[in-house]
């Protein structure tokens, strides 16, 4: 029987090794090993990506009339850029108005800094949506920093940093939770990643309708205010429901992004408090 076979000792050894790996991971022993591994394997990974990404793009486009698809993609990018600019202007105007009315002060010019990075790989399943980028602590990236699309929409948050590589949890990951608000009513809620890379918006008893724009809120200190996240595409339940089921469509096409921006000028509140 298998249980008495020569493989029993091997399975036992592997289970012991798994326990060792768990313990080593908990105390951080594996982190430098993983960092070295990522440095060594980076050329091979980049080579694989450069070969297969165009192939995947080609296969993806082959299912439809290629010219129309290309035009559609270009228009989507332009649309996202214009929408982002519009939202940003609206948010700024609203903020300026509030400040002028309440405090009689004017808002200073934003001094935001961004770091451009390439997407190296994407770990995507129904429950996880993580990308890695080719910038790390050597470039000033820190855990908790906010990652945006090249057009300025929120994509995710840095969760792990190595010397020249960082891992980013996208907003569609099932573990992602982002403090957000409806741009028009400023009702606060939480944007959550859901299974199959969808986005939901939890908010309590507030008017919300299809087409509303959802932006980040500074409420938790983890995100700067006013970053565009997405548009409401479906509102379930009735006005009497305490929590209505709200579905969002992200502004950025997370699955095809190859370049992202890390907002290095914004340090999350929890990192500031930690004195990191």
């Amino acid at each position: 029987m298998l249980i008495f076979s020569r493989y029993t000792w091997w399975v036992g050894a592997m289970l012991g090794f798994a326990v060792f790996l768990t313990a080593a991971g908990q105390v951080g022993v594996l982190h430098p090993v993983q960092g070295a591994f990522l440095v060594v394997t980076r050329p091979a990974e980049e080579l694989l990506t450069s070969i297969f990404r165009p192939m995947a793009g080609f296969l993806s486009d082959a299912g439809a009339i290629s010219d129309l698809r290309e035009e559609n993609r270009r228009l989507r990018l332009e649309n996202e850029e214009l929408r982002t600019q519009s939202i940003s202007l609206q948010t700024d105007a609203e903020r300026v108005k509030q400040l002028e009315e309440a405090l009689k002060i004017s808002q200073g010019a934003a001094n935001e800094r961004y770091l451009a990075a390439n997407v190296v790989h994407r770990d995507s399943s129904a429950f996880t949506d993580v990308i890695s980028i080719d910038r790390g602590s050597n470039s000033g990236v820190r855990v908790g920093m906010v990652v945006l699309s090249s057009q300025g929409s929120l994509m995710g948050t840095v969760t792990e940093v190595f010397a020249s590589r960082s891992f980013v949890r996208l907003i569609t990951d099932s573990k992602s939770k982002v403090a957000a608000q409806v741009q028009s009513s400023q009702a606060d809620g939480i944007v959550k990643g859901a299974a199959n890379r969808t986005l939901t918006f939890d908010l309590a008893q507030a008017d919300i309708k299809v087409g509303d724009i959802i932006v980040t809120s500074a409420l938790t200190g983890r995100y700067p205010a006013g970053l565009p996240i997405g548009k409401v595409t479906d509102v379930g339940g009735t006005q009497q429901d305490l929590f209505r089921k709200v579905t969002l469509e992200p502004f950025v096409r997370l699955s095809t992004a190859s370049t992202v921006l890390v907002q290095t000028s914004f340090i999350p509140q929890n990192l500031l408090e930690a004195g990191d």
Binding site: M14, F17, L38
Partner: peptide
């Protein structure tokens, strides 16, 4: 290491193949 997943979980995932 490449996907930043738990090494122990990845090991357990492929462990049954050989037996």
């Amino acid at each position: 290491f490449a996907s930043n997943r738990s090494p122990a979980l990845a090991l357990l995932a492929y462990l049954p193949l050989l037996p």
